[in-house]
């Protein structure tokens, strides 16, 4: 057998997941959601501009349109995933205490999930409300 000049096991090398166990997933998901954000931000801005200043019935009609509701929901998912990944980088850069860092990373995840869940529920309720 050939000699290894690394203490990493062959299995660890083959898996390529590194010390975090997550490999390049964080970086990669950040880039994928950056692409989807880029695609969805224009529809988002247009929909918000259309709704702005409208009375309630008009606002509900615009947001509950399937195309608008689907684009808004995709935007919310893409943005909350992206911002969770990004804020984790900021936390890991600036919060050095181990306990504080773990707490901040968990709080960051909870924040992203609460924002995402509340927004998606609201979009769904506005969309399905007239049907139910």
């Amino acid at each position: 057998m050939a000699t290894r000049n690394s203490i990493r096991t062959p299995l660890a090398r083959a898996k390529g997941l590194g010390a975090s166990g997550g490999g390049t997933d964080h970086f990669w998901h950040h880039r994928i959601t950056a692409v989807s954000n880029l695609l969805l931000v224009l529809p988002f801005v247009v929909i918000v501009a259309l709704v702005a200043g409208q009375p309630y019935a008009e606002a509900v009609a615009i947001v509950s349109h399937p195309l608008a509701a689907i684009l808004l929901a995709l935007f919310v998912i893409s943005v909350t995933v992206h911002m969770r990944l990004g804020m984790q980088i900021v936390i890991e850069d600036y919060v050095h205490g181990k306990g504080a860092k773990i707490a901040a990373v968990i709080a960051n995840t909870f924040f992203a999930i609460v924002i995402g869940a509340a927004s998606l529920f609201a979009i769904a309720k506005v969309s399905f409300g007239p049907l139910l």
């Binding site: 309630y56 606002a59 509900v60 947001v63 808004l72 609460v114 924002i115 509340a118 927004s119 529920f121 609201a122 979009i123 309720k125 506005v126 409300g129």
Partner: peptide, 9 residues
């Protein structure tokens, strides 16, 4: 943003 969606709902 979430506040705006929830208020609409």
């Amino acid at each position: 943003l979430a506040f705006w969606f929830v208020s609409l709902a």
